[in-house]
Nucleic acid binder design. Structure first.
Lengths: 148, 148
DNA sequence: CTGCAGCCTCAAGCATGGTTGAGGACAAGC
DNA sequence: GCTTGTCCTCAACCATGCTTGAGGCTGCAG
């Protein structure tokens, strides 16, 4: 089976070459190397990188994605079943995230009426579940932290 | 009406003093200054900062929050009605965001079955609406960009 | 065989959202 | 009146997620 150059992987995935190299340093892909040091990707790496792109769009951090990918089998090429398992896990996390946002939205509804923003009693201000901290920096989403 | 020191604001909002100063440089609050140069906050600034915290939790960037706060009246202290208007706007944006995530989730459902990740035909991979790009860097959420 | 496209590494840079520390001023309590 | 706590500014730093540029090999086409 022929290997794929980084440029071809970039063209096929739509990722920038620099991004793919970055993902390698982050441990999201582990291409082989040719005698002269060039990266040699497999077909399954394209799927892997696509998964990375999708997961990113879903709001997951690289650390989280790496953790998810780490559950793929080590020796062999992942099967469709493997990818299904991963997708299902992300689907669950996504559900939780959506629920968290919906909960915050409902709290916001309450606050719109009460005008209580800033008050100690404000449910939204004080709801301890940092449900939607989707900002930058480590995003501890709904309790599913990346590894510490 | 007595003004409030930055330390007290920090204690009352739960924000770090450094964060409040940072928010000032970002234009989210504009405290007055004492003769000796100390920041003098008003009561309404506490509400303002609480709004900032909540909006951050909802996933909005500082640029977006600044834009929202800019719609508050300039000369006078914002009324309950003003805050209600802001909250409603955020509620709408939040709805859009939740819908986007739900849409992605449904696409993911389709993909779990088809195992198509990485294929050109993959709906999730190719759905053009970058609906959930909640990562770091400028987060263009569901089309409601911060100012360019 | 030469030339250039494509690959390599490593360091630096950008944006976001802050924190930390140095060095200095001032206010208030004892 | 002195000491301690709080405040000030400014610069540097952290993490995340990349891009850009410098400087240098490699490999395939003509």
């Amino acid at each position: 089976m022929a290997t794929i150059s980084i440029g071809d992987v970039a063209r096929r995935t739509g990722l920038a070459v620099s991004a793919i190299r970055y993902y390698e340093t982050m441990g999201l892909v582990r291409p082989g190397r040719s005698a002269s040091g060039r990266r040699e990707f497999e077909r399954s790496d394209i799927r892997r990188l696509s998964f990375v792109m999708i997961a990113q769009r879903l709001g997951f951090s690289i650390a989280e994605i790496r953790a998810a990918l780490a559950t793929l089998p080590d020796g062999r090429t992942p099967t469709k079943r493997d990818w299904e398992r991963l997708s299902r896990a992300f689907r669950r996390a996504l559900d939780t995230r959506i629920e968290g946002l919906a909960r915050l939205r409902d709290l916001l509804d309450g606050c719109i009426g009460c005008g209580c923003l800033s008050l100690d009693q404000c449910a939204l201000h004080n709801s301890g579940d940092s449900a939607a901290s989707l900002g930058s920096g480590p995003r501890y989403l709904l309790g599913d932290d990346p590894e510490p």
